[in-house]
Simulated scan of single mutants.
Amino acid sequence: MLDKTVKIDGTLIHQEKRNSRLVLTQTPESNWESLLPKVKKMAYENKFGKIVGRVPEGAIKTFQLNGYRIEAKIPGLYNGHTTGYFLADYLNKDRMFLDKSQLKKSESIRAMAKAAQGSGENISERLPSNLSIQELNTGDIVQISKLHRKAFSPSSSPVYEPENLLQLFNQNHLFYGLFRQDELVVTALVKLDEDESNVEILDFATHPSYCGENLSYYLVPEIKRSTSILGYKTIYTLVRASSYGFNITLSKLGFILAGTLLNNTVVGNTLENMNVWYLN
């Protein structure tokens, strides 16, 4: 939210300086044939290394003709029936490749996640008695802010400021919280897209004292349940490809691996590959 967003020919372009990339998403005004050359020019001017487009199936030929390649595919991403694609153009060609150690670890995690597929889909029925889950509201901003200050460094996530949290609540975002007794120990940030009828889980924040307990495992089924009631068709999320824990967690909960976005997101000081998982 704190990166710069500009509009070109009616389409919003997100400039992410920290991640050295531009992100494009479909709008009713999008004319990709005329827009993509302008976007590439903008990326070069900002010295960004990558452009990512998240678009419906009808747009992929235009992207591919402009040098983009498909990195992930989510059936039903748009309103439950139109397939969505993540496509990438690399201005920095080095970002297209993984070294042998990265590739080996990624393959190992994929294999372990595949073996765990669907084994924990009823986890919400086993929520320990000392834990509770609820959707948070603006009255919880102080608690959320305190947790985020402990969970994140200022350079990696300035979202802990109360005014930024309020802005998220006012822009179709939800927070879910997991409490141990009366203490907020985990939050999940979710973005709702009413036009596309999909939900993106953007981030989890865990109190440092509870890291390693995999408590976010219990929040995902609640997100699925409550957003399904609201009529949303598809849930998706981007997860560090190097994270054994959460990739396996999502697979256990029935999520399907859609693909991997290479050298996509800076986590700490490292450019990470991101696995895309979905459920519909």
Rank of each mutant, 00 (worst) to 15 (best):
S106K: 12
D94M: 05
Y217C: 10
R149N: 13
I141Y: 10
I109L: 00
S228W: 15
Y44W: 15
S156P: 08
F246C: 04
P128Q: 01
A72N: 04
L77V: 11
K41Y: 08
N19Q: 00
M1I: 13
F255Q: 06
V6D: 09
R21D: 02
S153Y: 11
I51K: 05
I141H: 06
L98V: 03
L174C: 15
L77A: 14
L189G: 14
Y232K: 05
R225P: 09
E213I: 05
R180Q: 12
D182E: 08
L87D: 00
N172G: 08
N198M: 07
D195R: 12
L250C: 07
C211Y: 10
K17T: 06
M1T: 13
D182I: 10
G268E: 02
A151W: 01
I133Q: 01
G259N: 12
S197K: 12
L131S: 06
S129K: 09
C211N: 13
I13S: 03
G268V: 00
A241T: 13
V39D: 00
G10K: 02
L131P: 04
Q117L: 13
H148E: 15
V142H: 13
G76R: 10
K146M: 10
L165M: 03
L262T: 15
G67D: 00
R225M: 06
E196M: 15
R180E: 12
F97W: 07
N137I: 11
L35Y: 06
L98D: 04
E57C: 12
L202C: 09
F63Q: 04
Y160W: 08
G254V: 08
K146T: 11
S132D: 03
P37C: 03
N46Y: 08
S251G: 00
E194T: 15
V55H: 09
T11F: 01
S129N: 10
K4N: 05
K7P: 14
H207E: 00
K252C: 09
N273A: 09
S101D: 12
K252P: 05
I109Y: 06
T83H: 11
F246S: 11
F169H: 08
V39E: 00
V185P: 05
K7M: 13
H14A: 14
N269G: 01
S145H: 03
Y44K: 14
L202D: 10
G49A: 02
N247I: 02
K38I: 01
W32D: 09
Q117M: 15
D195K: 14
L165H: 02
N122Q: 09
G231T: 07
I133G: 05
S145A: 03
K50M: 06
R18P: 05
T138Y: 09
S197C: 12
Q167C: 15
Q143K: 11
F179S: 04
V220E: 09
F152L: 03
N19A: 01
T265P: 06
A72H: 04
G254Y: 01
V276I: 02
S216H: 08
W277N: 08
L238Y: 14
E29I: 04
P128K: 08
W277F: 10
L36D: 04
E196D: 14
G10L: 02
L189F: 12
L257C: 14
N269R: 09
S243C: 00
I123S: 05
L2F: 11
N269C: 06
V6E: 11
L215T: 00
H148L: 12
V55A: 05
P208T: 01
E163C: 13
V55P: 08
L36K: 06
G76Q: 10
R240L: 04
L238I: 14
E183T: 03
Y85G: 05
